[in-house]
Structures are given as structure tokens and as C-alpha cells.
Simulated scan of single mutants.
Amino acid sequence: MMSDLFDRLRQPVALADGALFLPGAALPAADRLWAAVQDVMRSAPLRRLSTPGGRALSAEMSNCGIWGWHSDRQGYRYVSADPMTGGPWPSIPEVMRALAADMACRAGYENFEPQLCLINRYVPGARMGLHQDRDEQAMAAPIVSVSLGLPARFLFGGLTRDAPRQTVVLQHGDVVVWGGPSRLAFHGVSPIRPGHHALTGGYRYNLTFRRVT
């Protein structure tokens, strides 16, 4: 009976029109995803970016794909070359690309082909303030977010900063997909609590798949 209850609690949950929470959906691929993420980070090392105002972001970042998200005094933007190395970003590993396409399809967004994956690494205390993903031209494409490692309290709101928001505890292997009417929903991450995960140690990793153009 407890197993049945757990299975029901881990069923997909609609967060809003166009937004779907898929608990544990990435677990079958988690080990392969983690190996792929490590490969990407060897080619494009993690770095801590700053806001246009000069404030350091608390999460470290890397990218793979034909674009990478970047931020500095010149603003938030996508760049086709890694500013750290001067070379192209590493390609999206197939296990990551296929998972993103499958998760988007499960949420009702067919034929999603990500152009990049933004990798965020959170240490305990790191957070992500409420924001909209609005630096992309391809607003018809969804955002696919995959969690690995330590849990996080994910804040998902509406189309204005002061709209009511809900808190979703994201565990290792959880996926959230949002697009359509929710594409510009404000979202963020509360400070990560200390802990240890068997795969990622004392970190939480978030993989965010997007299209830019």
C-alpha cells in the first residue's frame, strides 16, 4: 500500500497552463547524465559569472550546444563561443539531448530540439532569484529543467513578479517543463540546504535545455 501511495505522489503534476512537473522522470538516465555532465565540464569548466551590475551570481555555470548563456558588465546574452577558452562550446551529449526531447514531448511539446544546455552547480547557500527566461528569440519552444543531486525548493510563479507562486521540492531526477502560456513565468530557487548526495556529493546540478533561435 505504501508503494502505491508513493507511486501516486510521484505522478506528473500540472503547475500551470503549459507547465508540468515530472517527478523522477530522469532517474533511469541519471548515471549517464551525470557522466555526460562531467565530460562537458572538462571541456567547458564551471565559472562564476556576474550580473551587469557587477554582483557575482551564487551558482557556477557551464554550457554545451551551439550557444551558451553568458552574463557580465555588457549584459545577459547568448554567445556562440566560450569566453573562457575562445573556442566553441562542447556539443550536447546525445543522452542529454534525447532526454530533453523526450521530457518536452511528455509535457505536450513535440519535436523539441535543444540548442543548448545551461549547467548550474549550486553549493549549500546558493540560490537563484526570481526571474524570467526572456533572452531567447524562440519563445514558442519550452524550457526543460532537470535536477541532479541535492534537493532544491523551486519557486514557480506567474507572468508578473508579484504573482502568487508555489514551491516545489525538486529531488534528484525530477524534471520541470514549461512553455506556451507559462513560457515567461517567473521562477527561482531558494537557498540550497547542506547535504550529501551519493552521485554529486555536496552539490545540486540543474540542467536547463533551451532553444535560442
Rank of each mutant, 00 (worst) to 15 (best):
V95L: 06
A107R: 04
A101P: 07
Q74N: 14
T200L: 15
S182H: 08
L20N: 00
P45M: 11
R106D: 10
A16S: 14
L150W: 00
P194L: 05
V95P: 14
D72P: 12
H70D: 14
W34K: 10
S43G: 09
R8W: 08
Q137V: 12
S50I: 11
C64H: 06
R48D: 07
Q11M: 13
R55A: 13
L184V: 01
G157W: 01
G68Q: 05
M61I: 14
R42M: 10
L199G: 08
L150K: 02
H187S: 11
R165G: 01
W34D: 15
R48L: 06
G129P: 07
S145A: 13
T200P: 10
L20I: 11
M2Q: 09
L170E: 01
L15R: 00
L207P: 01
D162A: 15
L130G: 12
L27I: 11
M2C: 03
E94I: 08
P164E: 09
A36R: 03
L57R: 11
L22R: 02
P151G: 03
H187R: 05
Q115H: 06
P142C: 09
L155N: 04
M103W: 02
S50W: 02
P164G: 06
Q38R: 15
D17N: 13
Q166I: 11
L22K: 04
H172G: 06
R97M: 12
G179V: 10
L130D: 12
S80I: 11
L130H: 00
R77A: 13
G180R: 07
R73F: 11
R8N: 13
S145E: 09
F6G: 00
D7G: 04
A30W: 03
R193K: 12
Q166E: 09
P90T: 06
